[in-house]
Amino acid sequence: MPKLDIPNAADAELVHSSQKGNMEPYEELVHRHRDKIYARAFSMLRNEEEALDISQEAWVKGWQRLKQFQGNSTFTTWMTRICINLCLDLLRKKQRQKTDSIDQMNEEIGGFERKLPVEDVNPTETMELSELRQEIDKAMEKLSCDHRTVLVLHEFEQMEYREIAKSMQCSIGTVMSRLFYARRRLAKMLISLKKERQR
């Protein structure tokens, strides 16, 4: 059997070899996708240290469960799901100690939603892409943990309502409500950004 050319091998080949217990191909997989996994952890946790720890834990879990990977999705999708689950576990642990945020209360009573005028959101006209990404990132940071998580899972991970509800252990109605609130809040923040730039 020919030796695997690790740096040039496809993910699937590396996964196959790793499933036999070889660590070298797994190291290559870690190297290739570590930034993406870390970025996902950071987008959900908004804390560099926690994101780093969770990303490493995800790779450890990935190795331990590698034999369960059937190849129904890409390896990165599978790894991202592991990372998301770890982030959700951590957020749940944290949330048990925290009281409801103002965002959550607003969502429940619908106060913010009534006050917010519906406007055209298009701050991209005068912005560079990297600049825009940074602004979106800032706005995301201001969202409550639940609203940000729903938005990340739906917009960046393309997860369906049903999947999000299952991951977050809540109802589909809650997911829809949180998503709607998060989008409107994000819209408001980006509008104020646009207005600031126009001054």
């Binding site: 055209d120 825009l132 979106i136 917009e155 960046f156």
Partner: peptide, 30 residues
Amino acid sequence: DELKSVQKLLKYGENELKLEDSRDFYWSQV
């Protein structure tokens, strides 16, 4: 329209993040 605009904005993706740790250091920890 508002919801579509937000969706469109988010399609630009997330802020790209890169780990500062070297490959060897990160892997050694894992």
